[in-house]
């Protein structure tokens, strides 16, 4: 039988495997139903939907997902995890994308730019979680 060529560019295979390794999730299980985007509270802030984000990752295209800031805006609220009919832990997938950026020693926010009144007013938990999620 003739072998079907993989639609994934060989150079991108490494990226596919990296996401799988960091997230423990197989993005190829996604059937592109869009449920995660429909329930996502942050989707309006993202450059494109979570469904599209997963679609790019299925082809190992990480750059567009980084540009769309999906990892940055995902609040890890886990609403989509409850709803995904394929059992994909979507925030783990986008956490992997976020980590790939952070691990190049890149911060996704500038702590020095947080306004002074926010610094004075916000609770410790807000800073701990912000810095845990968005600084390297």
């Amino acid at each position: 039988m003739a072998s079907i060529p993989s639609p994934i560019h060989p150079e991108n295979l490494k990226a596919v495997n990296k996401i799988a390794e960091l997230s423990g999730q197989n993005v190829h299980e996604c059937m592109q139903c869009g449920t995660c985007s429909a329930v996502c509270p942050m989707v309006e802030s993202m450059g494109f939907t979570t469904r599209m984000g997963i679609h790019y990752l299925q082809f190992g295209e990480i750059e567009p997902v980084i540009k769309a800031q999906i990892g940055e805006y995902c609040a890890s609220c886990h609403t989509c995890v409850v709803r995904c009919p394929r059992g994909i832990d979507v925030p783990k997938v986008f956490e992997a994308v976020r980590q790939l950026v952070l691990r190049t020693n890149t911060d996704l926010i500038k702590p020095q730019e947080i306004p002074k009144d926010t610094m004075a007013e916000a609770p410790q938990i807000a800073f701990v979680s912000t810095f845990r999620k968005l600084t390297s």
């Binding site: 509270p41 996704l108 926010i109 807000a126 979680s129």
Partner: peptide, 10 residues
């Protein structure tokens, strides 16, 4: 639902 979490800072 989510209250927005740490997005209020970020």
């Amino acid at each position: 639902e989510c209250c927005g979490s740490y997005q209020m800072i970020a």
